[in-house]
């Protein structure tokens, strides 16, 4: 049962990165501030924590299932390998674009956004579901597919959950931190 541990480990790493990036996206375009690096770091951590919170129960259920029914381990591996066929190149491309974004000058940095980061954010939910389809085609059974579907749903829910949390938090703040005021005098 120890063979193939790289499959769940890689899936967890990808889910953690995806959660962190979802947290960042949820935080972007909220405050209007120019300098927001500190808030960006907090947003990544918040996304990571939310992903752990949402995906944790799925991981516990899978672990419990494998402990109770050891033969299921191979089924999970089959599904995981099939999903990674899509998720690994997708994630590697995003990470390469992020490295390019950090390293390159601003004109090429823009190209990393325009060619990869923007379109891949758009494609992300479709790619997540396509991974499920690959798992099904690889012959994963219904219990395994249900667990995989729950994990995909949990990963896709990170950003909407954080968005709702932000809206609720903003509604609680009375008066708002930066209230709308009058223009500076001429």
């Amino acid at each position: 049962m120890t063979a193939g541990w790289w499959v769940p480990v890689t899936l967890v790493v990808l889910a953690a990165l995806d959660g962190a990036f979802a947290g960042f996206r949820s935080s972007c375009g909220r405050t209007g501030l120019i300098r927001h690096r500190r808030e960006d770091v907090r947003a990544h951590l918040r996304g990571l924590a939310t992903a752990a919170l949402l995906l944790g129960p799925v991981a516990v259920l899978v672990l419990a299932d494998v402990l109770v029914h050891p033969p299921h381990w191979d089924d999970y591996l089959v599904a995981g390998r099939a999903m990674l066929l899509l998720y690994l190149p997708f994630g590697a491309t995003v990470l390469a674009a992020l490295v390019a974004y950090v390293v390159l000058g601003w004109r090429r940095r823009f190209l990393a956004t325009a060619l990869i980061l923007g379109p891949f954010t758009f494609a992300r939910p479709f790619v997540a579901v396509a991974g499920l389809v690959l798992a099904a085609r690889a012959g994963a059974g219904y219990p395994v597919l249900a667990a995989a579907a729950a994990a995909v749903l949990a990963a896709l829910a990170v950003e909407p959950v954080l968005d709702r949390w932000r809206v609720a938090a903003a509604a609680r703040r009375q008066p708002p931190a930066l209230p709308t005021g009058t223009a500076s005098p001429r």
Partner: peptide, 13 residues
């Protein structure tokens, strides 16, 4: 409203 918020953001930073 936009100009007011712009001024506030500039002051905040």
């Amino acid at each position: 409203a936009l100009v007011g918020r712009a001024a506030e953001l500039a002051a905040a930073e």
